[in-house]
Amino acid sequence: MKRLLALLCLAAALAPPAAALGPEETLAVIRTVDDRQRNSGDYKALAYMEAKEKDKTDVVYELVVYRRDQDQKLMFLFLAPKAEQGKGYLRIDKNLWFYDPSTGRWERRTERERIGGTDTRRGDLDESRLAEEYTATWEADEKLGRFQVHRILLEVKPDVDVAFPRIRLWVDQETRNVLKRQEMALSGRLMRTSYYPRWKRIFSESKKGEVWFPEEMRFYDEIEKSNQTLILIKSVDLRPLDANLFTKAWLESKSR
């Protein structure tokens, strides 16, 4: 019996480690992550964003996200709280504009803007473009809770402007859904950890297939440890949107 145990231990020790993913395979994983979330047509979703900050009252924002991924159009319209009602973001070409109905003014903002001053970035609610923006390197296969995951490091490609130059992803090997994400600053410092505990799928007519979206996202600020944001995505609608929706005039009309 002792001999059998020793043999088993030896076999375990000599067993090859989990096979490393090559660059092509790693890229394929990231492309799958993007493709599963990609919808070639229009996208509309109701989102709830709960922001918790130290020494501040928790705020729950309600907003509608509009996307036309085909030509990278994006718009957010805030519905609540009252103070934020009618405010919105609109991306026109490469510019992100912010509208405040209380002043009636449009301000150009960076695409890396913190949405509503929370830990949420534009990219969290936009189409996933990881394969376009980053170079992926497999780091390890490991367990994350009860899930078997690929741990993949993404580094920004030259001349691409993103909020975080380095991202570490934990991708579910079975479903190819991202379960955890760490975003690092240029200095290498961990800035934000995100968790995606619930994914949902919906059939897309335009894609003629399923579109996956994270129903729940939790962002933890790693610099200001007490700050966190929870996003819940509800009522995803993939039917075509009005052709003239992504305009300043439309967003302004919502607060009149």
Partner: peptide, 12 residues
Amino acid sequence: SAPTARGMSNTA
């Protein structure tokens, strides 16, 4: 913690 001129997050 601040964004660089290119908008990337950085820390010192």
